[in-house]
Computed example of a mutant assay.
Amino acid sequence: MFSAPKKTFHSSDAFRRGLESNFQKRHLVHLSSGSTVPLHKSCLWIVVRGMVRLGALTVHGDELMLGLAGPNESFGEPLSNVPAFEAIALSDCDLLCIPIEEIHDSPGLAQDLLSTVMLRQRQATHLLAVVGLRRIEERVRGFLELLAVDYGQPCEHGLRLPVRLTHQDMANALSTTRVTVTRIIGQLKDEGWLLLDQQRHLVMTHPKRSELRKH
């Protein structure tokens, strides 16, 4: 049995309650799974519940996966200069939309939001390191470990991913092909490193961030 991952910068429950208490009457938005999150240059989004996939399109029309935003993490155009930036709800989501001008006018709010930006920055940096690994097998392992440690839910056999990413999503994140990801996922299942639960969610049996230190 693995203990639940701990958020480093703030108490998740207290942070969420504070944001909802102060802003839900004007800014709380519910989006169903598969919905596109509307992005505005003057607003920042914060995930209260659910998971959002962040991505972009290249000039050749290829899809890129830039990361995920989970509970108490922020995203939006003010935090990205990537062309054709997009955000898609991977599950039913509750989001907070906060205008940038309100953040400027509230030092307390700005300080709280800094921790959400730090969480996303930490993930983005780690994802870049994973993509830089030479062997594709280690990229897939490192990516799944990142998701398990950041978002995994403790279960009998390890950490369960709360959302289902397609093999194409993983390929887009790791600069490889869907066929390659499918092959490696099969190998990890054969090794017992990965399991599928009854809801067909991936379970990491030995989630840890150790692979990068080997290279």
Rank of each mutant, 00 (worst) to 15 (best):
F2G: 03
F2W: 08
S3I: 14
K7Q: 11
T8F: 08
F15L: 14
R16W: 06
R16D: 11
L19Y: 05
E20H: 13
E20N: 14
F23W: 09
L28I: 04
L31Q: 02
S32K: 13
V37T: 05
L39T: 04
S42I: 11
C43L: 13
W45V: 03
V47C: 03
V59G: 07
H60T: 12
G61N: 10
E63M: 09
L66W: 02
A69R: 00
A69H: 01
G70E: 00
G70M: 02
E73H: 12
S74Q: 03
L79A: 06
L79N: 04
I88T: 06
S91T: 13
D94W: 07
I100Q: 02
I100V: 13
E102G: 04
H104R: 12
L113T: 05
L114S: 10
S115V: 07
L119T: 05
R120S: 11
R120Y: 05
Q123A: 12
T125K: 10
T125H: 15
L127M: 08
A129M: 12
E137Q: 12
G142L: 05
L144Q: 03
E145H: 11
E145F: 07
L146I: 09
L147P: 00
D150F: 07
Y151E: 05
Q153P: 02
P154W: 08
C155K: 10
L161Q: 02
L161S: 03
R164Y: 06
T176N: 05
T180V: 07
V181H: 00
V181G: 00
V181E: 02
G186M: 07
K189H: 12
D190W: 07
W193R: 14
W193A: 15
L196A: 10
D197R: 04
Q198K: 07
Q198R: 13
Q199L: 15
Q199D: 15
V203T: 02
R209D: 06
S210L: 11
K214W: 11
H215Q: 14
